[in-house]
Computed example of a mutant assay.
Amino acid sequence: MADAELWADRSAITHASKLKAHMFMMHGTNDPRCPINQARDFRDALIADGKKEGEHFEYVEFSDEGHGSADIAGKTRSYRLLADYLERRL
């Protein structure tokens, strides 16, 4: 298998149409490990597959974050959003 085929096979974007459960995504726009375009491309693949934001998934971007929150205020914000999501969905 060529590298391009291997990457495509293992990419979440390739398998976006298989999403069955509701999904919550948080992503920092300054993430050096996983660039924001990867999260946006996955979100866009879900939408292209007919899934609706809010109904099938939720997506949040943090313009002031990288790969995770570096300070207590950012961590608190992330955990509050996650707790709110879980309270609504479980």
Rank of each mutant, 00 (worst) to 15 (best):
H15Y: 13
H27Y: 06
M23Q: 04
S78K: 01
H27M: 03
D71H: 10
G66K: 03
G54Y: 07
W7T: 11
D64I: 09
K52E: 13
M1V: 12
S78Q: 13
E61H: 06
L86K: 00
M25F: 08
M23L: 14
S17M: 08
H22R: 10
T14A: 14
R80L: 06
Y59N: 03
Y59C: 04
D64H: 08
F57L: 08
N30P: 02
G28L: 01
M25I: 15
E58S: 12
G54M: 10
A83M: 05
D84C: 03
A16I: 04
R33V: 11
K20I: 10
S69T: 06
E65M: 14
C34F: 08
D9C: 04
D31E: 10
E53Y: 09
A21E: 13
D71K: 10
G68W: 04
K75N: 07
A70M: 09
A21R: 05
K52V: 14
F57M: 05
R40V: 14
A83N: 06
C34I: 14
L82C: 07
E5W: 11
A73F: 10
T76C: 05
D71W: 09
K18A: 15
D3L: 14
A70L: 13
A45Q: 03
M1L: 10
K20P: 01
A83R: 06
